[in-house]
Design a protein around this nucleic acid. Structure first.
Length: 424
RNA sequence: GGAGAAAUGGCCGAGUGGUCUAAGGCGCACGCCUGGAAAGUGUGUAUGCCUCAAAAGGGUAUCGAGGGUUCGAAUCCCUCUUUCUCCGCCA
């Protein structure tokens, strides 16, 4: 969430920036500033009452010790009144803080200066592209047909076991998944990321820390009996490793990677573009996360974009990189690049990665700070993450683009992980 | 799942109602000492919020978390969480 400080000091700027995300902030900010005013005066008054109580308690103690019962009892009466006031003020303060917080979390992150205004996907800006679109044979098939032809992914079986959107990978299809996961993890490790294997169920605090709760509650599967959530991305457990942590300057950069399955309810997106692997309820993904000094976070973002670009390049997939416009960006992001690969038989661009800088927005929720050696103050860090990469759409594009009459050709870089060079 | 024990600062650890403004040690930082280092020695060493133009300073809260008793709680009571030991179950 945004800090109170930025709202107090740069109200007009915040309103202007949030308009880029098509968000009208003025009313909410006014409410916040008013509540904050109340919070401070209440706290101020409560603290001085409490100071008075502490002083009286000491005096009463002294009087008892000296055997002056009567005087002690007089002071006790005086005490009771102040104590009651403190109690009322404490309740009031808690209520104000609760209100304040509930409004504060409704404000999205400020988009970076470079973010273009826009309503949706059509207004995203292409940064660059690469690879070449393949010439497919006349009888080219979409990946769901190829999956059936070579018996490597069974969508109907997933329906039987769980429901739609939970495919079953089989034989070389299953091994291809494992190979991709290994390839992506190895590349991340080579790039200096530390591998983690985190839990895939998280508690409410973690969901709040990275911004999934309370805004996107309906998008996560919830295990009610234990009040836990299935993660929609490894970002959640991995970033939360550093919840409530104070780093020192020489801890930077923190670079972490993790493979996890990801679970998304995708409520409201039935019907369109959900065929085959295009949109699933469970899928595999390798994620990269960085925790950075605020001055270095945009440099880190570029580094992460380059990392992801090298992955799609090495898989020989035609790709393009988009900078998202304000209207298409997530609630928590300050700047996002999306990667899309071209899936030739479907004739579609498919999003396979999203790389974002959250600046201090998540850090503020996470209470993730660093301490400067010189001024001894704590400052919020910047957090970033990106998919590197999400598997299903990569598999879709690989199957479709690499189909030949002799089977599906496995990209060179994957062969040491698959142990085979084609699916036939 | 059942029974018992425990949770204190970066770490170890003392502390069973007021002198806790949390002993002592380790670590770390800075100084002194030294030719340099070690040893020795001195000082400092948490976080949030409020106050202050800022800094300094002051106030307040925090001893696993949340409630309660009391004029006063690290200390007493209740609930929860986690860890350890034993029992049960189990890949």
């Amino acid at each position: 969430m945004l800090t109170l400080k930025v709202l107090q000091e740069n109200k007009e700027y915040v309103i202007e920036r949030l308009a880029v995300k098509n968000f009208k902030a003025e009313n909410l900010i006014n409410q916040i500033l008013e509540l904050d005013q109340k919070r401070r005066s209440t706290q101020n008054s409560m603290d001085s009452n409490q100071a008075e109580l502490n002083k009286l308690a000491k005096e009463i103690g002294e009087l008892f010790k000296n055997g002056k019962q009567t005087e002690a009892n007089e002071l006790k009466n005086k005490n009771a009144e102040i104590k009651n006031t403190v109690k009322i003020q404490g309740d009031e303060l808690a209520s104000i803080e609760k209100q304040l917080n509930s409004i504060l979390v409704q404000l999205p992150n400020l988009p970076h200066k470079s973010v273009p205004a826009g309503k949706g996907a059509d207004d995203n800006k292409e940064i660059r592209s690469g690879g070449s679109i393949p010439q497919l044979p006349e009888n080219a098939l979409a990946h769901w047909d190829l999956a059936k032809k070579y018996d490597i992914i069974d969508f109907e079986l997933g329906n039987k076991l769980t429901g739609s959107g939970f495919p079953v990978y089989k034989g070389k299809g299953a091994k291809l998944q494992r190979a991709l996961i290994n390839f992506f993890l190895e590349e991340a490790i080579l790039a200096g990321y530390t591998e983690y294997l985190p839990p895939i169920l998280v508690n409410e605090d973690s969901g709040f820390g990275t911004g999934q709760l309370p805004d996107k509650e309906g998008q996560m599967y919830h295990v009610g009996i234990d009040n836990l959530y299935l993660i929609p991305t490894a970002e959640v457990p991995v970033t939360n490793i550093y919840r409530d942590v104070i780093l020192s300057v020489n801890d930077f950069p923190v670079k972490m990677t993790a493979y996890t399955p990801c679970f998304r309810r995708e409520a409201g997106s039935y019907g369109k573009d959900v065929r085959g692997l295009n949109r699933l309820h469970q899928f595999d993904k390798v994620e990269i996360v960085q925790i950075q000094h605020p001055e270095k976070s945009y440099q880190a973002l570029e580094e992460m974009v380059n990392h992801v670009e090298n992955l799609v390049k090495s898989l020989n997939l035609p790709y393009r990189i988009l900078q998202l416009c304000g209207g298409d960006m997530s609630f928590t992001s300050a700047l996002t690049y999306d990667f899309e690969v071209y899936s030739a038989a479907q004739d579609k661009w498919l999003e396979v990665s999203s790389v974002s800088n959250f600046e201090s927005y998540q850090a503020n929720r996470l209470k993730l700070r660093y301490k400067d050696e010189n001024d001894k103050k704590t400052t919020l860090v910047h957090t970033l993450n990106g998919s590197a990469l999400a598997l299903p759409r990569i598999v879709a594009a690989l199957l479709e683009n690499n189909q030949t009459n002799q089977g599906i050709i496995i990209p060179e870089v994957l062969r040491k992980f698959t142990g085979f060079d084609r699916i036939d």
